[in-house]
Simulated assay, not measured.
Amino acid sequence: MKKLVNDPKNVVTEAVAGFGAAHADLVRVSTDPIYIVRTDAPVAGKVGIVSGGGSGHEPMHGGLVGPGMLDAAVPGAVFTSPTPDPILAATKAVDGGAGVLHIVKNYTGDVLNFETAADLAAADGVEVRSVLVNDDVAVKDSLYTAGRRGVAGTVLVEKIAGAAADRGDDLESVALVAERVIGQVRSMGVALTPCVVPHAGQPSFTLAEDEIEIGIGIHGEPGRERIKLEPADAIVDRLLGPILDDIPFVAGDKVLLFVNGMGGTPQVELYIVFRRAAEVLAERGIEVTRTLVGNFTTALEMQGMSITVLKLDDELTTLWDAPVQTAALRWGR
């Protein structure tokens, strides 16, 4: 294993410190307890948006903190949920008097720890609502979840909910917008290689040189099936079929198409994937009106990608287009 780390036990602390130093115009960081918050938090009268989860998925979530998106992000250890204490501290740090929305990926540890933090915040007089992202169509239940996993669609939920909060919506309205996105977004991924968690020092799973895992989770959890490597177009077709059949997406729909890299996949390959995905959608009469391509929800250095499709309406499109200024996503400011 070769990694640019010092002591594996200090990976998250040192990474967060570096992130804060690199983006001091956007965020400030706390190291005890550990969280990342936008520099102007709390914003008086605005709903605060907090998300988080295990580290190793960068730039999600810390890279998405800033005006128009998250007010705070709480990083746990690599692939491990943050504990309630830093979630509570981040929640209080962004409470501007209008309440706080927790955006939680559907993993058992995240769900339990965010629930505990929300209860503690409520006892301290902070109103908290929570939404649960479960966009992964690959598997319904696993060792890590009850129900579907929350994966790359979380980025879209955070952007659109953040825009709703930025325009002055109240807590109930921001939560409803987030729930609408969750109801209309679906994702599925593939792994070409495993990843190595720093403190483990060895791959989290094994794949033969000619094998890929269809439906992989963002921590390396098993997917639907392990198959022989296929051409990119065939892999895209395998992922898009279950995605489009799930809601289902139908002719006449307008969608956002998001191709997400898992950390080790070159941009040139992501655009090959996007090309085929756009072709399939056009063949079905589905119009791609908004796009996103890049590494946003990663699994350390895993080679692979995921495809996310969000059914848009006029309001969601307006909120997606609204200005955002974060380390990883920015336009309109």
Rank of each mutant, 00 (worst) to 15 (best):
I216D: 10
G109I: 14
H219D: 07
G220C: 10
E58G: 07
A117V: 13
D25C: 04
L156Q: 03
V151N: 01
A118C: 07
V250M: 02
Q202V: 12
A161S: 09
A41H: 04
T39Q: 03
P242C: 02
R167P: 00
A24H: 00
G97Y: 15
Q325I: 15
Q184G: 01
G241S: 08
A278T: 14
R148A: 05
G215C: 04
E179V: 04
G264Y: 14
T297M: 13
A164H: 07
V139Q: 00
D170G: 02
L26P: 05
D7R: 11
N106A: 14
E213D: 04
L281P: 08
V131H: 00
G147N: 03
D314R: 11
E172T: 12
P75S: 04
T108F: 10
D253P: 14
G62T: 09
R275N: 15
V259L: 15
V29R: 03
G48D: 13
T31I: 12
D237R: 13
M1G: 04
A93K: 09
G45F: 12
M302D: 13
P33R: 08
L240K: 15
I34K: 14
D170L: 02
T116F: 04
T317K: 06
L64V: 04
R275F: 13
L26R: 13
P84F: 08
G217P: 09
E172L: 10
V197W: 00
T39S: 06
I160H: 05
R224V: 05
F296W: 10
E221W: 06
A161T: 11
V131S: 06
A299M: 05
G304I: 05
G183D: 14
G215H: 03
V250R: 05
T326C: 15
D95P: 11
E315I: 12
L120C: 02
T308P: 03
V293S: 03
D85Q: 07
V74R: 05
G252H: 06
P33G: 08
A15D: 11
G168K: 08
D25W: 08
D210S: 14
G332P: 01
A122C: 06
V155K: 00
P266T: 14
M69P: 02
V94Q: 15
L171D: 12
I272K: 08
L171R: 13
G220S: 07
A90F: 01
P59W: 14
L316D: 15
D136A: 05
T317L: 15
D313S: 07
T308W: 04
D7W: 08
G68E: 06
A118R: 03
G48S: 05
V151L: 00
Q184L: 02
F79G: 10
T298C: 12
L310V: 02
W320L: 02
T154Q: 00
R129C: 02
L112W: 03
V12L: 11
F205P: 12
L316A: 15
L64F: 13
G241C: 09
T145F: 09
